[in-house]
C-alpha cells in the first residue's frame, strides 16, 4: 500500500473520532429542536460541564490512589452523566419552560444568556486557565510499513468508537422500541396531539433535555481525555461544531445528526491533513453557511409528510 493511502486512512480515523463526538453532542441539539423547535444554544456549555465533571471524578479518584482504569472510567461516565443531566433538566425548567408559547426569539435569547451564564459560572468557580486531565490511557496500535508513514490507532480512539457506538445503540433502542421513546417521537410530530392523548408533554420535553445532556456528557468525558486539557470556553466551539453537524444532517433528525457529525469530523480532518489545521474551522463554518443557504433542510432533513 502506498504511503498516501496510509496518510489518508489516518485522516479518516482522526475524522471519525472527532466526528463521532460531534454526533453525540449534535443529537442533543436535534432532539430538542425536533420537539420544541428551538436551538438550545446552552448545549455546548452542558457538554463543557460534562468535561469538568469527568475531570473531578478522574482526578479525585487518581488522588485517592485508585488504579483500576475500568472502575475510574465507569465512575467518570456515570457521575458526569448524572451531573450533566441535572444541568440539562434545570436549564429547561429555569430558562425555557417559562418562556414557551410566546415569541420564538425569546427562548433563543434566553438560551444565549444561559450559555454565557454557565461559561462564566464555571470560569469563576474553576478559573479560566486550561486544566490538564490526568492521563490514564496512552498508546495504541501502529499499522503500516516499517519506514514511511504509519497509521496510529490510539487506545483512546478505540474507546471513543466503542463508547459512541454503545451510546447510539442504547439511544436507538430507546427511541424506537420503548414506550417513552415512542412518546418522544409522537411529541416531535405533534406536541398538541400528544397532549390531547393525555401525555404530559412537559415531562417528555424534560426527558429530551436529559437525554441530550447525557449524550453531551459522554462526549465531554471522551473528548476531555482525548485532548487532555479542558477550559471553560471549550463548550462554545464544540457547541457550534455540533450545531453545524446537526444542521448539515438535517436538524430534527437523529440519524442526520450522526451523519452530519461524521461528515463534519472527516471534512475537518481532511482539511487539517492536506491543507492546514488553521483552516479546519473555516471549512467547517463555510460548510454551515453553504448548507443554510442552499439546503436548509440538510441531508436527511424531514421530508414533508403529506397531510391528507
Amino acid at each position: 500500500m502506498s504511503e498516501q493511502f496510509y496518510y489518508f486512512l489516518q485522516q479518516i480515523l482522526n475524522g471519525v473520532t472527532i466526528g463521532s463526538t460531534y454526533a453525540l453532542i449534535a443529537i442533543g441539539y436535534t432532539m430538542v429542536y425536533g420537539i420544541i423547535g428551538m436551538i438550545n444554544f446552552a448545549h455546548g456549555e452542558v457538554y463543557m460541564i460534562g468535561s469538568y465533571a469527568a475531570f473531578f471524578v478522574l482526578a479525585g479518584l487518581a488522588m485517592l490512589g485508585f488504579d483500576s482504569l475500568a472502575l475510574m472510567l465507569i465512575a467518570a461516565f456515570t457521575l458526569s452523566i448524572v451531573i450533566t443531566s441535572a444541568y440539562g433538566w434545570s436549564i429547561e425548567r429555569v430558562a425555557y419552560r417559562p418562556l414557551r408559547g410566546g415569541n420564538r426569539l425569546i427562548p433563543l435569547i434566553s438560551a444565549i444568556g444561559m450559555s454565557i451564564f454557565l461559561q462564566n459560572f464555571v470560569r469563576l468557580a474553576q478559573g479560566s486557565r486550561d486544566i490538564a486531565m490526568p492521563s490514564l490511557i496512552s498508546g495504541g496500535w501502529v499499522i503500516g510499513p516499517v519506514d514511511g508513514f504509519n497509521v496510529t490507532l490510539s487506545y483512546m480512539q478505540v474507546i471513543i468508537f466503542v463508547v459512541t457506538f454503545i451510546s447510539m445503540s442504547v439511544l436507538t433502542a430507546f427511541i424506537s422500541k420503548s414506550k417513552m421513546g415512542r412518546a418522544c417521537r409522537a411529541c416531535a410530530e405533534d406536541l398538541g396531539m400528544a397532549n390531547l392523548l393525555g401525555i404530559n408533554t412537559n415531562k417528555v420535553i424534560s426527558i429530551t433535555f436529559v437525554i441530550g445532556a447525557a449524550l453531551a456528557a459522554v462526549a465531554g468525558v471522551l473528548l476531555s481525555m482525548y485532548y487532555g486539557v479542558i477550559n471553560p470556553y471549550l463548550g462554545f466551539m464544540a457547541g457550534l461544531k455540533a450545531f453545524t453537524a446537526a444542521v448539515l444532517g438535517g436538524i430534527g433528525s437523529i440519524p442526520g445528526a450522526v451523519l452530519g457529525g461524521l461528515l463534519l469530523g472527516i471534512t475537518e480532518a481532511i482539511t487539517a491533513g492536506y491543507f492546514s489545521s488553521e483552516y479546519k474551522d473555516v471549512v467547517a463554518f463555510g460548510l454551515l453557511c453553504f448548507v443554510l443557504l442552499f439546503m436548509p433542510t440538510g441531508i436527511l432533513g424531514k421530508p414533508e409528510v403529506e397531510k391528507v
Partner: peptide
C-alpha cells in the same frame, strides 16, 4: 378522548404505534 379536526395522526409512526399512543 378526541378525534380532532384534521385527524392529526402521527404520520411518521406506524399504524400500530399510533394505536399504542392512544392506549398510553
Amino acid at each position: 378522548a378526541i378525534v380532532p379536526e384534521g385527524r392529526r395522526i402521527f404520520a411518521r409512526l406506524t399504524v400500530e404505534e399510533n394505536l399504542h399512543m392512544g392506549g398510553f
